[in-house]
């Protein structure tokens, strides 16, 4: 017997899987990005279904609002985004299918081998306060160290972006400055 909740789960799962499948089979690159978007929204929907609203919202902010928009931008900036891509060769198709199957097999093997132990304890409420405390906690179960490490990584990426963006400009400015100095000397 299926109740409403199960039906919603299956609908979300179908959305995720079908749009994920379409994302890799369509030959229009922009459509592929849009299907990827729907797949990610489906995953966010499953988080909502599980009542993990915070993770769902973060999923939407990071993946849908950030990464997919970035992908779409890079598609816009490359040429011939509207053209149909050529059909991949047989060898590639086979290899891709094999790789996907291996990944699936690995995950399923792990899932079946792992002994899930049930618990009677009530679930920790995923409130923002709890998440914040856990994220910056230094006691057992706290994620302060990984949090800081990731922050440093992101900071490095940010600085790197700024350096790349600035490089040309500073050289030009220096040359410009030199010329100005020469003018002044005269």
């Amino acid at each position: 017997m299926m109740n409403g909740s199960t039906i919603i789960f299956y609908l979300l799962a179908a959305l995720t899987l079908v749009s994920g499948l379409l994302a890799v089979t369509t030959r229009l690159i922009f459509r592929s990005a849009i299907y990827l978007l729907f797949s990610l929204i489906g995953i966010a929907g499953i988080y909502f279904w599980l009542n993990y609203e915070f993770i769902a919202a973060v999923q939407i902010v990071v993946y849908v609002g950030g990464i997919v928009v970035l992908i779409i931008f890079s598609i816009f900036l490359t040429q011939q985004a509207g053209e149909q891509l050529p059909r991949p060769t047989m060898g590639r198709q086979l290899f891709a299918a094999l790789a996907a199957f291996c990944g699936l097999a690995l995950v399923m093997l792990q899932l079946y081998k792992h002994n899930f132990t049930g618990t009677d304890k009530p679930a920790v409420e995923p409130t923002v306060a709890n998440i914040g405390n856990q994220m910056l906690g230094v006691e057992e179960g706290g994620y302060a160290l990984p949090f800081e490490v990731v922050s440093i990584l992101l900071l490095a990426a940010l600085v790197g972006c700024i350096v790349i963006a600035l490089k040309k400009d500073t050289i030009m400015n220096k040359e410009h400055g030199k010329q100005n100095d020469e003018v002044k000397e005269r």
């Binding site: 915070f54 973060v58 939407i60 902010v61």
Partner: peptide
């Protein structure tokens, strides 16, 4: 319980 975050997340769509 994350009403405001939800709004800013979905509005990015």
């Amino acid at each position: 319980n994350i009403g405001v975050l939800y709004v800013s997340a979905v509005s990015s769509l």
